[in-house]
Design a protein around this nucleic acid. Structure first.
Length: 425
RNA sequence: GGAGAGGUGGCUGAGUGGUCGAAAGCGUCGGUUUGCUAAACCGAUGAGUGGCUAUAAGCUGCUCCGCAGGUUCGAAUCCUGUCCUCUCCGCCA
């Protein structure tokens, strides 16, 4: 969330930003409520002050005075309770608007209401291959090479679930190893996170666990949900904590399963591994000082480029338009890999600078030695490798005319072979 | 799953109704001492959020002792609920 005072003092800017980001939040109403809230809070404080004074005096008072003072105290506490109730009412209304206000946007982010305004910034080192045969998509490849079983997945858990088999399993583990080892070399602390998290952690990171549009599976009779990304538990890592400024930046690598209901996503791009309910993801996450976050975003994006360049996968880097940023992101870059089977680019990574938007809700702060007070950290997240989508790109880009798939050089140590041979069934 | 113990400031830990935002120790910061380091000694040292003054510093209100309620003029302290942690037992990869 944004700073309340910032909203009041920059109402016009915030309003314009909301327009750019398709947010219906009523900023004028919010500002009015904020002023009313402050006034009411002052009233509550003053009543409390009087009541406290009376309460304190009773202990020292002459016994004959006590009953009169008690009566006075009772009366003041009643008034306080009344004012407090009014304050709470204001806060409830304000909160619902507050939650709908998105983060501010980076001045260089392309302005536009949806993903059509996204701007391609540059391309990866690998250029798309010219195939001298008709490339298959990963589902066909998977079937021919016996790498995935979607039917069995559906029998066991429904549409959107799958079994990985044979080399696909080796490939998944290899992609994990490759990503983790690369990040390890860059000083990221590797973690395996819980795959479930409390709903307040979800909310702190900007995910909404309930409601008709939710992407989140929640666990019945508990306040736990399955995580949609390791960003959630990693953000929660410092929830409610205050750390020393010199510990920043903190670079984390989180390995987790990700679960998404994909509500309302039926129809397009649901074939195969592209849009599934469960996948493994290696995620990068960073806590930084405010002045470090812009540089860190570039760094995370460059890490993603490095990984996909090394996998010899063609991609483009897209600067996400304001209307497509979601709530918490200040700026976001996506890598879209070329997927020959689909004949189009498909999103494989996404990295965001959330500035202090998540930190404020998570209450993650830092303090500078020798200085009074605390400040909110900045949080950033970025996909290192989302296995299912990376697997699509690897299989489709590295398929050969004889039906086999060449394993990218960097994965061979972990796959243990250089090629997935076409099978003779 | 069963039984028990406990959640207090950066940490350890005292505090059972008013003088408690909270002892003491550790840590941290500043100073004295010192050839240097260490030690010793002295002093300072929680956070959030408003207001006043304002270069800065400062002054001041309110809130916060896991969280939410309740009792009371008054709650870290009493009551209820809830979450979490730890120990033991059982079960289990």
């Amino acid at each position: 969330m944004l700073d309340r005072r910032f909203i009041v003092e920059n109402a016009e800017k915030v309003k314009q930003n909301c327009a750019h980001r398709n947010s219906p939040a009523d900023i004028d109403r919010f500002v009015a409520l904020e002023l009313a809230r402050k006034a009411k809070k002052t009233e509550v404080d003053q009543l409390n002050q009087k009541a406290n004074e009376v309460s304190k005096s009773i202990g020292k008072a002459d016994p004959s005075q006590r009953e009169t003072l008690k009566e006075e105290g009772r009366r003041l506490r009643e008034q306080t309770a009344q004012a407090q109730a009014e304050l709470a009412q204001l806060e409830v209304e304000q909160e619902s608007i507050y939650r709908a206000i998105p983060n501010m946007s980076h001045p260089d982010a392309p302005i536009g209401v949806d993903d059509k305004a996204n701007l391609e910034r540059f391309r990866g080192k690998t250029t798309p291959r010219q195939f001298d045969f008709k490339p298959l998509d990963h589902v066909e490849l998977g079937e021919k090479l016996d790498l995935m079983d979607f039917e069995a997945g559906a029998r066991v858990a429904g549409h959107g679930f799958y079994f990985l088999k044979n080399e696909a399993v080796l490939l998944e583990l290899a992609l994990q190893q490759f990503a983790v080892q690369t990040l390890l070399g860059e000083g990221f602390t590797p973690t395996i996170t819980p795959d479930l998290a409390r709903n307040d952690v979800l909310e702190g990171t900007g995910y909404i666990p309930r409601g008709p549009e939710t992407q989140i599976y929640s666990i019945e009779n508990s306040d736990l949900s399955l995580i949609a990304t390791a960003e959630i538990p990693l953000g929660g890592l410092l929830a409610g904590q205050t750390i020393e400024a010199e510990q920043l930046p903190i670079k984390l690598c989180g390995i987790s399963h990700c679960f998404r209901t994909e509500a309302g996503a039926h129809g397009r791009a649901t074939r195969g591994l592209y849009r599934v309910h469960q996948f493994t993801k290696i995620e990068m996450f960073a806590f930084t000082l405010p002045e470090q976050s812009e540089g860190m975003l570039d760094y995370l994006r460059d890490m993603e480029c490095r990984l996909f360049d090394a996998l010899e996968i063609p991609y483009r880097v897209v600067d996400t338009a304001t209307g497509d940023l979601g709530g918490p992101a200040y700026r976001k870059f996506d890598l879209e890999a070329w997927m020959p089977g689909r004949g189009e680019f498909g999103e494989v990574t996404s990295t965001s600078n959330c500035t202090d938007f998540q930190a404020r809700r998570l209450n993650a702060r830092y303090k500078i030695k020798g200085e009074k007070g605390t400040h909110f950290v900045h949080t950033l997240n970025g996909t290192a490798i989302a296995i299912s989508r990376a697997m699509i790109a690897v299989l489709e880009n590295h398929q050969q005319s004889d039906g086999s798939v060449l394993i990218p050089e960097v994965l061979r140590p972990w796959v243990g072979k250089e090629r997935i041979e076409a099978r003779r069934k």
